[in-house]
Amino acid sequence: MSAAVLDVRGLSKSFGGVRAVDGVDFAVAAGELLALIGPNGAGKSTCFNMLNGQLRPDAGGVSLNGRSIVGLPPRRIWRLGVGRTFQITATFVSMTVRENVQMALLSHHRRIGSMFARASGLYRAEADALLERVAMRDQADRVCGVLAYGDLKRVELAVALANDPRLLLMDEPTAGMAPRERVQLMELAARLARERGIAVLFTEHDMDVVFAHADRVIVLDRGRLIASGTPDQVRADPQVQAVYLGSGAMYGHAQ
């Protein structure tokens, strides 16, 4: 494996007497898709929120390309090359597809003050190039409020790519999508990751998506890492089977 883009060591976070994340270690390399899975309350969302600065760890380290990002606010982390998509899409519904991407580009180029002028001509070609990558160029002039949910997910991915990320955090990327749309989105994410050398960490409740697209899988249960390996290794792991099989939790909605 190539050098880690993201390196997490001993990551821990408690809320009161509950250890939401307890001494978690993992790394993600350039071009790799790593799935983070586990039942409700496993600590996945808490882990994600520490990685992009929404929560500060109680202990442990998080390094991006060898640089510690612990304690940095989300915007600083974003500027260092960390993109994120969310379980519920967050686009400006009254703006066009292109304008949504342009807003992200304005922020990336530190031109957000230009939004008070007509921003429609700024970074238009760059926005269209990103939309081309996610197969949304032909819908660039449509208002986001009328798009199908799967198309909104593609727009959100284009927005996440606007800062040329080295690491992409995808929180439940296929939630709410039809089965065919799930496959298409993850194939797109995998292709972009490998073409551009982006490290991708994603959470996902659909195990078919995880086992079909992840290069490696890590499993959290009650805040602790209980398994790590290839999809086949994790699927066959006795501890994973003991934790999930029989309760149906492995196919439950991730948190």
Score class of each variant (00 low, 15 high):
Leu185Phe: 09
Ala254His: 12
Ala3Ser: 13
Leu11Cys: 07
Thr96Asp: 05
Arg137Ser: 09
Met250Trp: 14
Gly71Glu: 08
Ala242Ile: 05
Leu51Thr: 08
Leu122Ile: 10
Gln87Pro: 04
Asp58Lys: 04
Leu188His: 11
Val146His: 09
Ala129Lys: 01
Asp25Ile: 03
Gly248Val: 02
Leu105Trp: 01
Gly121Phe: 02
Ser114Gly: 11
Ala90Ser: 13
Leu55Cys: 03
Ala236Ser: 14
Gly71Thr: 06
Asp22Ala: 12
Val18Ala: 06
Ala193Trp: 10
Ser120Ile: 00
Gln87Asp: 07
Ala189Asp: 03
Leu6Cys: 10
Leu147Cys: 07
Ala212Cys: 00
Ala35Ile: 10
Gly31Leu: 10
Met250His: 13
Ala135Asn: 15
Ala175Met: 12
Leu147Pro: 09
Glu156Pro: 07
Arg75Trp: 12
Ala148Phe: 04
Phe86Cys: 06
Leu11Pro: 06
Gln54Val: 14
Arg9Leu: 01
Ser14Trp: 09
Leu220His: 06
Val234Ile: 14
Val24Thr: 00
Ile37Trp: 05
Ser12Phe: 03
Val210Asp: 12
Asp215Phe: 05
Val24Trp: 07
His109Val: 01
Ser120Val: 02
Asp7Phe: 00
Ser63Phe: 12
Glu181Met: 09
Cys144Asn: 06
Leu51Lys: 02
Gly17Asp: 05
His108Gly: 02
Arg75Gln: 13
Ala35Gln: 05
Lys44Trp: 13
Arg19Ile: 01
Gln239Asn: 10
Val5Ser: 05
Ala125Trp: 00
Arg67Gln: 15
Ser63Glu: 14
Asn100Gln: 02
Ala125Lys: 13
Ser45Lys: 01
Leu157His: 03
Gly252Phe: 03
Arg79Val: 01
Ser63Trp: 12
Leu168Lys: 07
Val97Asp: 04
Ala119Glu: 07
Val8Leu: 04
Phe202Thr: 07
Met207Lys: 06
Ser14Gln: 13
Met186Leu: 13
Asp22Ile: 01
Val217Arg: 01
Met115Ala: 14
Val210His: 07
Arg196Tyr: 08
Val209Gln: 06
Ala199Tyr: 07
Gly66Arg: 07
Asn49Ile: 02
Gly246Asp: 10
Asn100Met: 11
Leu105Pro: 04
Arg191Pro: 01
Leu225Glu: 07
Ile198Val: 13
Phe26Met: 10
Ala212Lys: 15
Ala158Trp: 08
Val146Lys: 08
Val159Thr: 11
Ala242Gln: 13
Pro179Glu: 11
Leu168His: 11
Asn40Ile: 09
Gly66Ser: 06
Ala175Gln: 10
Ala3Asp: 12
Ser68Thr: 14
Ala59Cys: 00
Phe48His: 08
Phe211Val: 01
Ile88Ala: 13
Leu147Tyr: 06
Asn163Tyr: 00
Asp232Cys: 02
Pro179Phe: 08
Leu11Tyr: 05
Ile88Gln: 15
Gly41His: 12
Val24Ile: 11
Leu55Tyr: 15
Ala59Leu: 01
Ala3Gly: 03
Leu64Asp: 03
Leu157Thr: 13
Leu34Trp: 10
Val146Pro: 00
Met50Glu: 03
Arg137Leu: 10
Val28Asn: 03
Leu220Gln: 06
Ala27Tyr: 00
Ser68Trp: 07
Met115Gln: 02
Asp232Ala: 15
Thr46Pro: 08
Val217Asp: 05
Ser114Leu: 15
Val21Gln: 08
Leu34Arg: 14
Glu181Ala: 13
Gly60Pro: 13
Asn52Val: 05
Arg235Pro: 01
